[in-house]
């Protein structure tokens, strides 16, 4: 794996530019897998108007780097890019980008899913949603815990 690119930022990222950065001038890799997480307009029974993402600045970068390194130890990877936004986000906004290039697709698929599953349960981000009824903190999902546990039990 080359030096991974990890960014936590308020700004909107450019999906096309991020994808380009995974494959351009990269003749050794035969596969690129990307995941983009978006803000939905309906969650946990409420119509959402806006979302605010809080994080623990000193910890987020460290945790993301550690998750990427764990992926690197399990699969043969080329380039890895992880971007997570914080602050105020609108409906349909991209929240997270995980991109992995690898010589073969199985490694890229597995690593991208692993990074997302661990990010969901270990990276210190919290979502607060604004709806017509007011604002509320998003509750953690048991299914996310189960998804992460599957990797850790291996």
């Amino acid at each position: 794996m080359s030096q991974p690119y990890i960014l936590v930022d308020e700004k909107l990222f450019d999906i096309a530019a991020e994808t380009d950065a995974l494959y351009q001038d990269n003749p050794t890799d035969g596969a690129v897998v990307t995941f983009i997480g978006l803000v939905r307009d309906f969650n946990q029974g409420k119509n959402i108007k806006q979302l605010t993402l809080e994080h623990y600045p000193a910890m987020t970068q460290k945790v993301l780097a550690d998750i990427v390194e764990q992926a690197n130890q399990q699969w043969s990877l080329g380039r890895v890019r992880v971007i997570h936004r914080v602050g105020d986000l609108a409906i349909n906004d991209p929240i997270v980008f995980v991109g992995v290039s690898a010589m073969h697709r199985a490694d890229a698929f597995m690593a991208a899913q692993f990074i997302m599953d661990l990010l969901k349960t270990q990276a210190p981000f919290w979502k607060k949603e604004q709806s017509k009824e007011g604002e509320h903190w998003v509750e953690a999902r048991a299914s996310d815990q189960t998804a992460a546990q599957k990797w850790l039990a291996k």
Partner: peptide, 8 residues
């Protein structure tokens, strides 16, 4: 200390 995380 913080609640279970909900990023992604």
């Amino acid at each position: 200390f913080f609640p279970p995380v909900t990023g992604g």
